[in-house]
Nucleic acid binder design. Structure first.
Lengths: 338, 338
DNA sequence: CGCCCTAGGTTTTACGTATAACATCGAGTT
DNA sequence: AACTCGATGTTATACGTAAAACCTAGGGCG
């Protein structure tokens, strides 16, 4: 019903302009220099405009064997982080005539299942975050060019990887807290099997173990404020075992720690220093404002897209992790003398 | 390079199974009952499996004239609200063999420009939130079936609309605050030209004007914590003019009010009651937890997708706004006697 | 015995585009 | 005058799929 009159094709434009379909394709495809006169080209463009012609993308895709569409698989849409990744990727893509289709993996961060089951879009390549090896090999089975974001370079079956320098972020947090005088730590870890979180644990342990007299306990929680609150409440309730600083795997977990601390009557940062990781809007919404590590999501997306374009064109992908930096706010301070 | 060997086509499968390409299409398209023997069908399926055959979607789209792909235009990805809308829409879509492609409008909430400029995907229809009339008519120019979310039913040029019952949500907030005894209000409005926000203003004014002795001032802010903080700080700084309750157009704005209140030494809810709208995770992350109106984002997405399917099939779309409900938390209380 | 019907396929075609290969024509070149 | 060549197009074809139209052999039936 909405299709009362079928959309005009390049043949309709050709007829209206009094030329062949091939000429239309040449003109509109901007390949007409030296093949079609300027006058004819203008006639074609005018006819196309009058008819409201838009090329049939399915036909173009079939003909070219490429769709100029890539899939960006993201674990969650609920934070501005992946919105930023999308923005960066889409900007670079647009510069190269590509479109980016978003696929939010329903399982959230962690092992994503087949991203193609529900996507009907024909794709040229995939940028994927936090994917498990099995889903990854499914993509490889598609023979689709692939770039992995924030994934174990060793375990990605030869796919290109683009990573944030999370390890350095954790180092910066560690230095900051150590230099304030903290020695008793709680690591509130995301209870999610993902390389990006493994890096946090590994690096934190490595860094703190170098300093004599430090202790680190670990608590795990799902990435939600409620989950983090519950886990933190459990880990902070015994005054004898209480840490002076809590290092959280991301800002959302930190927000849960705030709530647990309030429930337990602990004041931040006087009784407890807290750090996050991401620098979401949430970090400045809560009181006191959160000391955290800022990740440049847009740059991350840009680099991911550039890497995929490199793969598509058979070039080498540029390497090097993306730098991150510590943002010190009011949630960290020297430990209270006890 | 990644395309060392080209992907197998249905013809390759046919050759491997010793049948014609048509037979492959029939079997794999599940249209073979009474046309192909069970034995042959099994041979075809096996060959397809062995070769790792996946149909070329571009070819299918061209042949069928439909892509079973719809575009969901959302203003922002930075809150879980539109993630929920996507989830609901994608679930219904999947049940009908459709895929949903997300297009985050770069301008955020408000007038979105041409959503097709950057999308290379071939589409069957569009679900759009918060679109301006000009972009809307661009879509209509595509002759693409369209469903509008949260838009003025009168101004949508005959497109189907699916709306949340925001007006009722505002009524519930008003009742709640009035019954607590509040009479001096500040309305912190989103400084964004969108119908969904106009409804809030209109309904709040209408509801409060019925009660004698009430006053409402309005302040406007962009939808960000910082923007809201600045606007609220300005509107709350004069003690003589100070309201006892602030009604915010959404939860993010409310978070900004919290920060302004803290800066001014106002305690919530003792000195100031605050309400939001959305019920994001943020609402329970801040202290005290925010009284707000919960919107069922997933149901919203579901209904949007169902409406689009109805349009695609020439059916009538079901009508009726989606109910919302007030969630009373700790940010509202009776005004202090002064 | 001639005929039709059905099971089980095959041949052919169309979808709309991009482009390689081919045509035409007048002007300059030898 | 024959030849080349650039400018300006046109004709023909392929991409991979779905499905309409067609084919063939055997069996039932009058």
């Amino acid at each position: 019903m909405a299709r009362g009159s079928t959309r005009p094709t390049s043949r309709d434009v050709a007829q209206a302009a009094g030329v062949s379909q091939a000429a239309v394709s040449l003109v509109l495809g901007d390949k007409w220099r030296g093949r079609v006169s300027e006058a004819t080209a203008e006639r074609v463009r005018e006819a196309a405009r009058d008819l409201g012609y838009r090329p049939n993308l399915a036909a173009r895709h079939l003909r070219l064997g490429r769709t100029r569409t890539v899939l960006l698989v993201v674990p969650v849409l609920t934070t501005e982080f992946f919105a930023g990744v999308y923005t960066g990727a889409a900007r670079v893509a647009a510069e190269h005539g590509f479109g980016v289709v978003l696929y939010p993996s329903p399982e959230g961060i962690g092992p994503a299942r087949d991203p193609f089951a529900s996507s009907q879009a024909a794709l040229d390549g995939v940028i994927a975050s936090s994917m498990a090896a099995d889903a990854l090999s499914a993509i490889r089975g598609e023979a689709l060019p692939l770039v992995m974001l924030d994934s174990d370079p060793a375990g990605s079956l030869g796919a290109a990887t683009v990573n944030l320098d999370i390890a350095d972020g954790v180092r910066q947090i560690s230095e900051h807290l150590l230099s304030l005088g903290h020695r008793r730590f709680l690591h509130l870890a995301a209870d999610v099997p993902s390389w990006t979180f493994e890096v946090r644990s590994r690096e934190l342990a490595a860094r703190l173990s170098r300093v004599p007299g430090t202790s680190v306990r670990t608590a795990r929680a799902p990435i939600s404020i409620e989950g983090a609150q519950a886990a933190a409440h459990g880990a902070l309730s015994d005054p004898a075992e209480r840490p002076t600083a809590v290092v959280c795997d991301d800002d959302k977990l930190a927000a849960g720690v705030y709530k647990a601390a309030r429930r337990l009557g602990l004041r931040i940062p006087d009784d407890l220093s807290v750090t996050g990781l991401d620098d979401l809007a949430l970090a400045t919404a809560i009181d006191p404002e959160l000391t955290t590590v800022r990740l440049d999501a847009e740059l991350f997306g840009e680099r991911g897209m550039r890497a995929l374009l490199a793969v598509l064109e058979g070039r080498e992908t540029e390497s090097g992790d993306i730098p991150v930096h510590l943002v010190v706010r009011a949630s960290t301070g020297p430990p209270r003398r006890s």
